[in-house]
Design a protein around this nucleic acid. Sequence first.
DNA 1: TATGAATGAGTATTCATTCAT
DNA 2: TATGAATGAATACTCATTCAT
Lengths: 193, 193, 193, 193
Amino acid sequence: MGTPGLADRIVEAGGRLFAEQGFHATGIRAIAQAAKVSIGSIYHYFESKEEILERIVRAEIDRRREFLEGLRKQGLPLEEQVRLIVQHHFSLLREGRDSARLFLREWFDPTPELRTKMYRLYDEVAGYIAQLIEEGIAAGEARPCRPLVAAYTILGLVEAVSLRALSGDETAALLMEEGPRELAESLWLWLRR
Amino acid sequence: MGTPGLADRIVEAGGRLFAEQGFHATGIRAIAQAAKVSIGSIYHYFESKEEILERIVRAEIDRRREFLEGLRKQGLPLEEQVRLIVQHHFSLLREGRDSARLFLREWFDPTPELRTKMYRLYDEVAGYIAQLIEEGIAAGEARPCRPLVAAYTILGLVEAVSLRALSGDETAALLMEEGPRELAESLWLWLRR
Amino acid sequence: MGTPGLADRIVEAGGRLFAEQGFHATGIRAIAQAAKVSIGSIYHYFESKEEILERIVRAEIDRRREFLEGLRKQGLPLEEQVRLIVQHHFSLLREGRDSARLFLREWFDPTPELRTKMYRLYDEVAGYIAQLIEEGIAAGEARPCRPLVAAYTILGLVEAVSLRALSGDETAALLMEEGPRELAESLWLWLRR
Amino acid sequence: MGTPGLADRIVEAGGRLFAEQGFHATGIRAIAQAAKVSIGSIYHYFESKEEILERIVRAEIDRRREFLEGLRKQGLPLEEQVRLIVQHHFSLLREGRDSARLFLREWFDPTPELRTKMYRLYDEVAGYIAQLIEEGIAAGEARPCRPLVAAYTILGLVEAVSLRALSGDETAALLMEEGPRELAESLWLWLRR
DNA sequence: TATGAATGAGTATTCATTCAT
DNA sequence: TATGAATGAATACTCATTCAT
């Protein structure tokens, strides 16, 4: 409601441009122009270009965490939960959600400090999934395994495949179409008791 | 035999530095210094900084392809092949093979052209794995599925997990230790008939 | 009496910061923060950053002029007057009086207009000293000389030495300790009939 | 001989511009333009803008040191030496020697590190003068005093007066004309036995 | 009076690339 | 082949100043 604040416009424009061209290739001037904001305003709200990226990533993580928290409260069987997690991820991609794309990019390029922060945020999400799996094991739905390793396996699998699915070519289209079902099935075959 | 040529020295130094610091953070002067080569020589052998990266990536892909070709000739059962593919990947990481790290980095940052090239090279490897799976299906070892999607699943899974395993923290250590066995098992549970 | 006005707080904070870090290195925001005043208020009371400096310098000049006027009224012998002028200057420095330090700084850096203003203010002080000398010559205490040149000599001598005395090292300590007596003596040896 | 190298052109242009407008007011682009050199070349030869200033100051100090060394070898009476030091200084100013002007400027503005360097260089010159005075005392020409304090007195006196003499107004003209004789006389009256 | 969000020209510096030798 | 001096467009970021509230 109401017009979005400058900070929001900056984050939105930054997210889009970073996702399209990469963090390094996106200049602060381009962000300012895209957000219809002065360069000075960017630095009024953010300490640096990196802080913009950080905010974007944090927001994306938050969204995923909320989804997982909501999922957990529903008490669905683990198989269904896995299916929904995979679907959720792909639907974010399909919507063309910029930050979903960005999230897959920039894992490595920024300074080590940012990378450390990103790992920490990522670990939060993995922790949620590990919890779901742990409960699934306790309920006898899943075979005994290390929940955290399994969580990273799920996340990694889903992200790596969706990464390829973003390229825009034929292989990408195939993965985008068949990916969700095939991945959810694979994961369940692997996790189930 | 004999001293390596200038081009080799450049590729070797570039690979090391790109992997350590990233493509953008590595200057051409740093490469020149590390390779004990003049800046002029770099441009004598390579058109641009990107071409150095391209060569490094191509070499890495070639090494993997050779491994997969060799694997295929041995006619092992698919379960064993999957196990060896996973193991091979992790052992490259464990050796600290620079280009293996690099391969995981720079997936996204460079110009779109380079990205396209990288996809193409990556697809080569995926194609080899898809072939192995196709043969496994034909031999009744694996359940029917889309081989290319399955190949990307395997590659994506392995790379995404190893990506996290490179961070150097505790989670990374856990993934590095438990990852290969757990992943191979997962993949086989999923692929088998 | 009562709380000092905003303008005073700004001048006080500006004087301190300029003296500590220099005019260029001190931002308007730092002044606002130190004075616990909004940026807007600064521009309400002053036209520009330079005007703050100008006010500080003017105040310092005024203080010196007052001292010199008071000195003149006492009708002391010129030798004594010279001694007191030197002492006064060093005691300002020793007290750590910010504007005394500032006065020695920023002689040159600001825009030409400000420099001109500073010269004019400085000339006021020199004029007072020249007057004292002129009266000393008339009274037969001092040798005949150009009073204005002599005044600049005195001012320059004292300031240049105190400049060096501000550095905080060993030489500075020596100058701070021996400077006042030695300088007063020198000046009198040189001025006296 | 032959055309001066790029580094020389940069130093020359930098010295001129710094002296005219001050260190802060002189941009690197202005130096590049004035020296008819690319910005890149400046950074090829100098690490930073400050390094240019440093080189200029060092050169100026070197020139003065050479003059003082030459003076000392001539074995003139101290009175004559003092006269020549003062004259030398003023003749540098009169020649419009840029670095002489610069030397008087920028005593304070740059970073603390540079200031420390400048003090150290300045102390070298003061040390030479102190030596001359010490020998003068030993020879019975000068009254006993602390040579280093006396040296700073001489330097400070000369520089402070010449500082004022640079302003370009009437007072400046008076100081420029009468300064050398008057100062030399003053100093000798003060130093002599 | 008083505020501080908004501005954008300006800054020093970097770095891939070229080219005369 | 081999060099490295020379280039200059591009970069992230600063900061005095304005102005609507």
